[in-house]
């Protein structure tokens, strides 16, 4: 069964249409990437799925059920998002403990103490960080907290918006390894947005290349090895990323 299916999705902010006729599907347990430069609409697609951008038309199905335009609790249990900038996505006045407990509170889940400790353990954070504030952690540690928060509700689908682009290469490697391990352990489905082709090659099986709000190509990431792409734009992107092209 497909975890995510998008059919002819158009997305507009006010009167400006930014995404045109986007269709793709992500199988359950698959890791799928959206690639493109800034302004190509790749983050907007994620926002529409997460109901952060409401001006869309077409059909978005999550786990076989059509996505409503409102925030709904059942959807949040299934699908969570990790944002690009770990410096901006955590509440600066709340401790890590409060940040991780919030989704449990909203959904009325009990056993919070053990759940939080287990989750900190799963994302590789020592439990002494539990009562610290975000500004006391490094960028990589903050991104681990953001991933932990997204996993608190045990979702099956994760929307990752450039999860490592604000981080150093060495920290990026740690976070990528973490995401890969979590996916194998919990059988997660990833939809990841990135402009870094080698990262996509490492994390994902298939990718869709976007340009000016349209998908120009959908292919296996195995094509990154050979550089055989059908669209000229993908070739260009590949060459700019240092691929032999």
């Amino acid at each position: 069964m497909n975890a995510l299916t998008l059919e002819g999705v158009n997305i507009a902010y006010g009167h400006t249409q930014v995404v045109h006729d986007v269709s793709f599907s992500v199988a359950s347990g698959e890791s799928f990437a959206l690639v493109g430069e800034s302004g190509s609409g790749k983050s907007t697609v994620l926002k529409a799925i997460a109901a952060l951008a409401t001006g869309w038309s077409g059909s978005i199905e999550v786990a076989g059920k059509p996505r409503s335009r409102e925030h709904d609790k059942a959807f949040a249990r299934q699908c969570q998002m990790v944002f690009q900038d770990p410096y901006g996505s955590l509440h600066p006045r709340k401790t890590i403990d409060t940040i991780l407990a919030e989704p449990l509170q909203v959904h009325g889940l009990g056993n919070r103490n053990t759940r939080i400790l287990d989750m900190l353990n799963a994302v590789g954070l020592d439990k002494r960080y539990r009562f610290r504030f975000p500004h006391q952690l490094s960028g990589g540690q903050r991104q681990r907290v953001a991933i932990a928060r997204a996993l608190m509700l045990e979702p099956s689908i994760m929307l990752l918006d450039e999860p490592t682009s604000a981080l150093d290469v060495s920290v990026q490697a740690e976070i990528l390894n973490l995401l890969k391990r979590l996916r194998a352990e919990q059988n997660l489905t990833y939809l990841m947005v990135s402009h870094n082709l080698p990262v996509v090659g490492f994390m994902c099986e298939r990718m869709a290349v976007m340009q000016q709000g349209r998908i120009v190509e959908i292919c296996d990431t195995a094509a990154l090895r050979t550089g055989e792409f059908t669209s000229g734009y993908t070739q260009e992107l590949y060459a700019a990323s240092g691929g032999a092209g």
């Binding site: 290469v169 060495s170 490697a173 740690e174 990528l176 390894n177 870094n196 090659g201 090895r225 990323s241």
Partner: peptide, 16 residues
């Protein structure tokens, strides 16, 4: 070593 390569065969990236 921590940088993912375009032709990537490693299952896990080496961490410092």
């Amino acid at each position: 070593a921590a940088v993912p390569q375009m032709v990537e065969d490693r299952d896990e990236l080496p961490v410092l």
